[in-house]
Amino acid sequence: MAQLVVPRERARRFAPWSVVGWLTILLMGLTMFGAFIYAPTDRFQGIAQRIFYIHVPSAWLAYLAVFVVFIASILYLVRRSGFWDRVALSSAELGVVFTTLALVTGSLWGRQVWGAWWVWDARLTTTLVLWLIYVGYLMLRSTMGDSPRTARFAAIVGIIGFIDVPIIHQSVNWWRTQHPTPIVVTPGENPALPPSMLLVLIVAVIAFSALYFWLLNARYRLETQRERIAELRRELQGAADV
C-alpha cells in the first residue's frame, strides 16, 4: 500500500496516523495469513468459505461508516463546524466503497453456498438499499458543490438514511420469510464456528477497522486541502480587488 503524500513540513504532525497506517498493513497481512493458512477449510462449503474473512468485515465497515455519517451529521447540525461535515462526507464515501465490497464478495460467496449470484435475502437486500441511499447522498453532494447549504442538506439525508436502516431490514425480513425460504446455510448463522475461524474473523474485523480509520483520515485530509484552496482563492480575489 502506498504511503500517502504528506507535505514535508507537516509530516511530523501526522505521525500518529502513520502508526495507524503501519498497523493496518501489519493486521491486513495477518488477516491474509489467517484466512489462507491458519484457518481450516470448511468441511461443507469448501475453500470458498474463506471469503467469509473479508466479507463479514467489509459489511461491518459499511455499517460502521454509515453510523459515523449519522453521528457526524447530527453533530454538524448542532455545532455547525466544518470538521463534522468533512467527517460525514469522508465516511459516506468509505461507506459506499465497503458496501460495494460487501455486496461483491457476498455475491461470490453466495454463488458457492446458494448456487446463485444473487438471492433476495434479507441481509443482502438491506445492504443493497443502503448502497443506493449513500450513492444518492454522494450524488446530492456532487451536484450541489461546496457550500454550507450542501452540508446541511447532506446532513439531513445522512440522518434520514440511517434511521431508515432498521425499518428497511425489518420490512425485507418479513417480505422474504413470507416466501418459501431456500434451504441454505445463512452466512453468520453457522451454529458453531470453530475457535480458529472465530479468531481469524476477529483479527480481520480489527484489521478492517484500522483500515477504515486510516482511510478516513486520508480522505479527510483531502477535504482540508480543498478548504485551503478555497481560502487561497478568496485571498487572491481579495488581493486583486484592492
Binding site: I54, L108, W109
Partner: peptide
C-alpha cells in the same frame, strides 16, 4: 475447483478496490 476461482476473484477484487 469452482470454489477456488470464487475465492480468487473475491480477494483480487478486495485488493484492487482498496
Amino acid at each position: 475447483n469452482p470454489g477456488f476461482w470464487l475465492l480468487f476473484a473475491a480477494y483480487t477484487i478486495l485488493w484492487l478496490v482498496i
